[in-house]
């Protein structure tokens, strides 16, 4: 198992930059196993990331990797995918990256239903800059910029993605790494915009300040608070209040952007007689 992951890593890049107990490596490993399972040709596989602790994952992967600017990964990836639809494109983003500075690109990539697989490392905080609140920090939680508790409501990434037009939406936690891997596989197989939210621990920037313990304790917290879609069906909204629903949350049908553009090319060439 380990060697299978290793073969897709740039081993000369280790040790990685992440703190002890950080969940980012678990998401990275799930992604690699998923790509292995998908059987994608590494030469045709592209991983694009934004800026943040989580976005550093791209640099450790032995694919075509692009570490972009904060919030813009999906826009770079859109250019790659539209230019070369035959490439398999994964996009790694932090919660702040994807939904604050990159929120606009996120909803528009979903609206276009462009065939990208987006993986959002949701650690409920701006990790890289030292623990400021993000649009995914739950109300009441503490961050360096919310020393008296966060007063902003947080996004529900899955609802946001679905509402904006994504055709595959799923969520898992780093405790449920095997499920995460399966969801990434299914998301990648969806011909359209897929979003997989990975709940992950940032013990240094978030856990410590909110008395959630170390990385291991935060993993156990994920275990205790996660309920599957099936379990959730039988639960009341009151029971679900502090729970994280994991699994496949939405699957939809919509035309995929690059396929639609191929039709534009055919129409244009017919019109102009090329």
């Amino acid at each position: 198992m380990l060697s299978q992951v290793e073969s897709h890593l740039r081993s000369d890049r280790f040790p990685h930059i992440w703190c002890p107990g950080c969940g980012n490596g678990i998401v990275l490993a799930a992604l690699v196993r998923a790509i292995e399972e998908l059987g994608y040709d590494p030469d045709k596989t592209v991983v694009v990331s934004g800026i943040g602790c989580s976005s550093r994952a791209a640099g450790y992967l032995d694919f075509n990797t692009l570490h972009t600017t904060h919030g813009r990964a999906l826009a770079f990836a859109t250019g790659i995918k539209l230019a070369r639809p035959e490439l398999e494109v994964f996009v790694l983003m932090g919660d702040g990256d994807a939904t604050a500075i990159g929120g606009n690109h996120f909803i528009h990539a979903a609206r276009r239903n462009i065939d990208l697989t987006a993986i959002i490392f949701n650690n409920s905080i701006y990790g890289m800059t030292g623990g400021q609140y993000s649009p995914l920090t739950p109300p009441g939680k503490r961050a360096t910029t919310a020393p008296y508790g966060n007063i902003e409501r947080s996004f529900d990434i899955a609802e946001l993605a679905k509402g904006a037009g994504a055709t595959y939406v799923a969520r898992a936690t780093t405790y449920h790494a095997t499920m995460l891997e399966k969801l990434i596989v299914a998301g990648a197989r969806n011909k359209g915009f897929s979003v997989i939210e990975a709940i992950t621990a940032c013990p240094v920037g978030y856990g410590r300040r909110n008395k959630m313990g170390n990385g291991l304790q935060m993993l156990l917290w994920q275990k205790e608070h996660a309920v599957t879609v099936k379990q959730a069906e039988k639960m009341s909204p009151e029971e679900l209040r502090d729970k994280i629903v994991i699994g496949e949350l939405y699957k939809g049908e919509a035309p995929e952007y690059t396929a639609m553009y191929q039709q534009v090319i055919e129409r244009a060439q017919k019109t102009t007689g090329q």
């Binding site: 600017t69 990836a77 250019g79 539209l82 606009n104 528009h108 553009y261 534009v264």
Partner: peptide, 26 residues
């Protein structure tokens, strides 16, 4: 599109610049 090329109207200029870089890298 008549030349087999691609045009996209992005959501803003930041995204446009990003997409252009992505396409060039491809």
């Amino acid at each position: 599109p008549a030349l087999g090329g691609k045009f996209i109207q992005m959501e803003d200029e930041i995204a446009s610049m990003a997409a252009v870089i992505g396409a060039s890298l491809a």
